[in-house]
Design a protein around this nucleic acid. Structure first.
Lengths: 332, 332
DNA sequence: GTGAAAGCGCTAACAC
DNA sequence: GTGTTAGCGCTTTCAC
């Protein structure tokens, strides 16, 4: 199991390490005969190139990292696959990292990306600030942010029309069920939560409905969070007639809680979500939600990252916005 | 953006690179005063250790790879998180790789693991053979296989009682709905498909029911596959009374197809799945299925891999079997 | 078309 | 408690 190096191969093939290197890289012509011979010897000896040594030498790792808050939220695997599909085409490999929405983990992975000299990172986080992310870019790692735009750092951003989508969904609820519409929000520090909350507020203002603190609860972006949020709302002095949830996982949890209490959806209480994950159309009643496009978002992130990693683009931060649209089903 | 090295720090702090190295590693005592000074200088200069150089030197990357067939199957993210949770405790990082069930991708990732000198890999695949995986282990990468056991390679394996679970589910269907029970299988080369198919066959034999080729269709392990499989079965000369599906995604697809055709489940046709993913209890009717424990499987894989990567264990292949049990709900 | 040799940034003998 | 130095395995100038 001691490892064969390029020198071992060179020695056995009777050529220089330089030649062996060029046989593999194709960076300069090698006589056909020599080439064939070297290749044969390499296979015979079971030579495996050492990517670590190569990376140290060429100062590139051909690897990108995707940092995500929750891999068990079905939105993200689809997103990640979108990124990977375009990166693979560019000969880049991808590490998928899961922060579990934890602040320390977000920082730890970003740190890792710098130490390991990764070529790029696609980041989606709840805690890390713009200057911190800018520092990662300054350390020479290409960065694409899934979320807010960056104005003074060379960081591209990709986002959905979260604010508009939330506004549309809330307006729909308001029109159909009257002014008593509540919000179950996700992790409050999340930029995406802020955007959706803001859309929710806009709709209320537009309809001339006053904000009610007792009609806004904040949990995390999970099914369990949705159950807790719904319980709080239903136990309050004046339960809402309809509720807008910051994502589908929350909405599904809210549905669970309503069902547990024997409440009919939407007749007793209407529920809408955000994302349109696959499960949104599997639950009963099917979820009214805002359709989001994880694959398109992933592909956009992959493309921007690729263009930066290859240095095809080196300018200021760009922004891609992918539309998210209300889809009305049975739950509201 | 030119990078600060340990030598730059050493020069500025007026010590040797060795001392700087030991300040960070703690591998030998450094005078408190010196240590504090070096740390301050390092921060001032924005020094970031280069993990690539370190890996080349120490011949370890502190990184493991998880290779999975389909990250969008909710079973796997949970599994992956189980692995990561234990690996993180051992200071190991984890790359998550998605083969999309493709043969070339399985090989490509395994190859990558060797080139990048990863310390270990948790593998779940459909195509790669035992000898091929043994070669990865022989190249010095610790290997844990999610699936079949290995007898003559130092590769640990972790699996569910797939055969028993499939047998139990099929027997239940047979008892309750009579002998007309069909199978919608997943990708045929998958070891897990073979095990579940074998359990299905055992139950038929035990009940004295003859195998019927027209009651066995093979698709892939997806919702779309389940729809296609169900369509084939329903379009056949003698549609079955009940169907056992090789996983829940397939079962949910089968449910979709039945609903599309206006068939009542389980009254017209009964459906059972395998895995008990979260969605199994979200669909209507709720899925009768075999409960699998992705988190326990993941943790077991993580532990075996860790013990091998740290060389705490270096013996022959071990095996962990996690029980999978029938859970009866409404679909059958 | 081929080779010699320097060096990527780090660690760890082996000195003292 | 600290420093000198030799590589880890590769790529790439520079030379022929």
């Amino acid at each position: 199991m001691q490892r064969i190096t390029i020198e071992d191969v060179a020695a056995r093939a009777g050529v220089s390490p330089t030649t062996v290197s060029h046989v593999f890289s194709g960076h300069r012509p090698v006589r056909d005969e020599t080439k064939a011979h070297v290749e044969r010897v390499a296979v015979e000896m079971g030579y495996r190139p050492n990517a670590v040594a190569k990376s140290l030498r060429v100062q590139r790792t051909n690897t990108a990292m995707i940092i995500l808050p929750d891999i068990t939220n079905p939105f993200y695997p689809v997103f990640a696959r979108g990124v990977q599909d375009v990166l693979r085409g560019g000969e880049y490999h991808t590490l998928l990292c899961n922060t579990d929405s934890r602040e320390e983990e977000e920082r730890a992975f970003l740190d890792e990306a710098i130490s390991r000299r990764l070529d790029g990172v696609v980041f989606m986080g709840y805690w890390v600030t713009q200057p911190e992310l800018a520092a990662v870019a300054a350390a020479g790692v290409a960065v694409v942010n899934l979320g807010e735009r960056f104005d003074d750092a060379p960081i591209d951003s990709v986002r959905s029309t979260d604010e508009d989508g939330a506004r549309d969904a809330t307006s729909y609820l308001l029109n159909r069920y009257g002014p008593s519409v509540a919000l179950i929000d996700g992790t409050k520090t999340a930029p995406v939560a802020r955007a959706r909350t803001s859309g929710f507020h806009q709709a209320l203002s537009a309809a001339g409905v006053a904000l009610r603190p007792d009609h806004e609860v904040s949990e995390d972006f999970t099914r369990a969070g949705g159950m807790r949020g719904m319980a709080t709302l239903l136990d309050s002095a004046s339960p809402p007639r309809a509720v807008f949830c910051a994502n589908d996982q929350i909405a599904i949890g809210a549905l669970d809680e309503a069902r547990k209490r024997g409440l009919a959806v939407p007749d007793d209480i209407a529920i809408a979500g955000f994302d349109d994950i696959e499960a949104a159309s599997m639950v009963q009643p099917q979820l009214t939600t805002v359709h989001n496009s994880p694959d398109a978002l992933g592909a956009a992130c992959g493309e921007m990252l690729l263009s930066r990693m290859t240095r095809q683009y080196e300018g200021p931060g760009r922004e891609v916005v992918v539309p998210a649209e209300l889809v009305i089903r049975a739950s509201a």
